[in-house]
Amino acid sequence: MIFTRFRCLTRRHALPALLAAASLYPAVTLAQGTGANTDSAPSDETRLELTASGTVQAQPDQLTATFFAESRADTAAAAQAQVNSLIGKAISAAAQTPDLTVNAESYFVQHEDADTRQNRRAQWVARQTIRLTAADGKTLLPLVGQLQAENLALTRLDWSVSRKKRAELTRQAETLALQDMQQRAHAAADTLKLKISSLASVSLDDQDIPRPMPMMMARAASADMMAPSAPTGMQDVTATARATVLLTP
């Protein structure tokens, strides 16, 4: 008597058409029991657990630059006024650039005590972060150079796949994962001299792991400095499929 315990995966169910195929990689687990438990699979049924993945590559279609403006002054009001002025100029410049998304983000003010060992007097520090996003580096990079020249610090410059494009690529990766599962299920069944009866469960997961560009922390020394470069590279979008396949003699 053969039976198998299995863990049912319930995150998302694939198409019924997949019943005839389930192939996966990196792990294939074949579980069999001794028939001692009454809640097990039928005596002539074996459960095969599979894991497969599919990956598609695409050029990123979204460039993001993150800056912060920082000011130090004897009073909180003075420090904030200077930061507000820098961020206001940046937002005004961004408003003149077409197809650009601007987000003013974290803002904080704190007091730093004097430190005689570092020859530092007591002062207030204000800082705010701003994030600029565009689909075209030719549009964003000149503005990045301009803002650097105006004493905003560039902390991050990276390409990514937009949400809309990632959703499309994820569907493609899921299809590849299911096809891989299909092939592996048939290969396993053939090797074991068994037949695929049905699928007990199928789940799909996508892996959203962007590839960051190197961090940049440079302030501009002059207004005529060159804008930074941001070469693009292919990015992966991967989906994983897991299934429990029922096999019979």
Score class of each variant (00 low, 15 high):
D190P: 00
A153V: 10
L199W: 06
S106W: 15
G88C: 07
G233E: 13
P210S: 02
L176R: 11
A221W: 10
A177W: 04
R5F: 08
L247D: 05
S160D: 05
T248L: 03
Y107D: 12
S197C: 00
S85V: 10
T155F: 03
R12S: 13
L63W: 02
E49C: 03
S198F: 07
T129R: 05
A241P: 08
S53Y: 12
Q96G: 00
T139E: 01
R127K: 10
K138Q: 15
L247V: 07
K138E: 07
Q128K: 14
P142N: 02
D208S: 08
D158A: 11
L154D: 04
A78F: 02
T64P: 04
R166Y: 14
K164Q: 14
W124N: 06
A77E: 08
R117S: 09
G145W: 02
T129Q: 08
L100W: 01
R7T: 12
R11D: 08
T129G: 03
R127N: 07
R242T: 12
R127W: 05
V102P: 02
I209Q: 14
E45Q: 15
A126Q: 03
L15D: 13
R121D: 14
A76D: 13
K89S: 07
Q146C: 00
G33E: 04
A27N: 15
I196Q: 03
A227T: 07
Q32S: 11
A69F: 01
N151P: 00
A220Y: 14
L152H: 03
L132I: 05
A95R: 10
Q62I: 02
A20G: 14
S85R: 15
P228K: 03
D224V: 09
R219H: 10
V202P: 01
A167L: 14
R171V: 09
L50E: 06
P98L: 01
L15V: 11
A81G: 13
R121I: 00
M216N: 12
G35A: 04
L147H: 05
K165Q: 14
I87G: 03
L48M: 05
V144I: 01
M217H: 13
A95Y: 03
L169N: 05
P60Y: 01
R11V: 00
R156Y: 06
A126D: 02
F68H: 09
A227G: 01
M234G: 00
V102L: 03
T129D: 07
L140F: 04
R211N: 06
A93W: 03
Q128C: 00
V245C: 10
A177M: 06
A185W: 05
S40K: 12
S106R: 13
Q57T: 13
V109A: 03
R184T: 14
S43C: 05
Q148F: 06
L24P: 08
P42I: 09
T232Q: 10
S85Y: 09
L48E: 01
D61I: 02
G145N: 08
S85G: 10
P26E: 13
E112D: 08
F6Y: 15
D190S: 12
G35E: 06
D158M: 06
Q59K: 02
V237G: 03
R12C: 12
A135Y: 02
D236F: 04
P142T: 01
S85M: 08
M226C: 00
D44A: 11
T244K: 09
P210I: 01
A17I: 11
E45K: 13
R211W: 06
G88Y: 05
P228G: 00
A189T: 08
G35R: 09
T29C: 10
A104Q: 12
H111M: 00
V83I: 07
L48I: 08
Q57M: 11
V56I: 11
A173N: 04
A41H: 04
